[in-house]
């Protein structure tokens, strides 16, 4: 009784094999990350210095720093988030908390899903047609708005998910003591979904910072001698800078190219780290 049959043995060996295969695939995700970061940092090490992040480019990008590109990326990302976050979060609250399942909701949801699937270069063309047309010339504002359109659907989707994770029982409890929807949202739903909402928003920072196509025609320039003075100025940006110096046919030293990539990567990682810390902080305050 209770002895191994051949069938059981076969099941066990398949079990072991599948576990190994799946585990190996999961583990393999670490490899590219380590290789990319390691390779970039190693190649960039000679050029990384305080000057590199605080000075203007000199001698046709071949020396000096990349300050204007950092500043441009910072402005574009900040403005795009300042626009996309309130619109996205409020829209998601509407869709998750107020909307009934009718044709309007379905149309909005369809629009969100499809907008999320639009390639970034198409967003860029839309930005040219819509925002640059209004502002008259490519500028930070037009580029930021293009980035905002690009990040909006993802912010809506992630916020909706965070809101949906708040148990329905809490809402029922609120309605049944006569709380309005807004009181329910304000006192219960939002405080308990804040960590998820913030995480989703911050992850879009890295996406907005990394995309080149949407800002290519809408506000980013190859080179500019001074920092932007207003949102109607054009500006350099990290992703654009990297793209242009890397495609210049070997005139710009490799170290500068890799240095730019490391700065971009570092900014994105720093932002993601902030997201993780915020999430941990808000989770610890969660009370269920």
């Amino acid at each position: 009784m209770f002895t191994e049959t051949p069938l059981v043995r076969r099941k066990l060996s398949i079990e072991a094999a599948t576990k190994l295969a799946f585990g190996a695939m999961a583990a393999s995700m670490i490899v590219p990350l380590v290789l990319i970061v390691g390779y970039l940092v190693a190649k960039a090490l000679p050029v990384l210095s305080w000057e590199f992040v605080s000075a203007f480019p000199r001698s046709n990008m071949k020396a000096g720093g990349i300050l204007p590109a950092i500043a441009g990326t910072f402005y574009m990302v900040a403005i795009s988030l300042a626009v996309a976050t309130p619109i996205g979060v409020l829209a998601a609250v509407y869709l998750n908390e107020y909307a009934r399942d009718n044709w309007f909701t379905r149309v909005v949801n369809l629009a969100v899903v499809n907008l999320a699937g639009v390639p970034s270069i198409v967003h860029a063309l839309f930005g040219v047609g819509a925002f640059v047309f209004v502002t008259g010339k490519p500028c930070i504002l037009a580029a930021s708005l293009t980035l905002a359109i690009m990040t909006l659907p993802v912010i809506i989707a992630s916020t909706k998910q965070a809101l949906a994770a708040v148990p329905m029982a809490f809402r029922e409890a609120c309605w049944n003591v006569g709380a309005s929807r807004w009181q329910t949202i304000r006192h219960i739903v939002l405080p308990n979904s804040l960590s998820g909402i913030l995480t989703g928003v911050i992850l879009q920072v890295s996406r907005a910072a990394g995309e080149t196509a949407p800002i290519l025609f809408t506000g980013a320039v190859f080179f500019r001698r001074e920092l932007p003075a207003s949102v109607l100025d054009q500006s350099m940006a990290l992703s654009m800078h990297l793209f242009s110096i890397a495609t210049q046919g070997g005139q710009v030293p490799e170290t500068v190219q890799y240095g730019t990539a490391v700065v971009l990567l570092g900014l994105v990682l720093a932002v993601n780290l902030t997201a993780i810390c915020l999430r941990i902080y808000f989770r610890s305050r969660k009370k269920w």
């Binding site: 029982a169 409890a173 219960i188 308990n192």
Partner: peptide
Amino acid sequence: FQRPNPLPI
């Protein structure tokens, strides 16, 4: 309700 649903406060 069926399941006690105190608010998370």
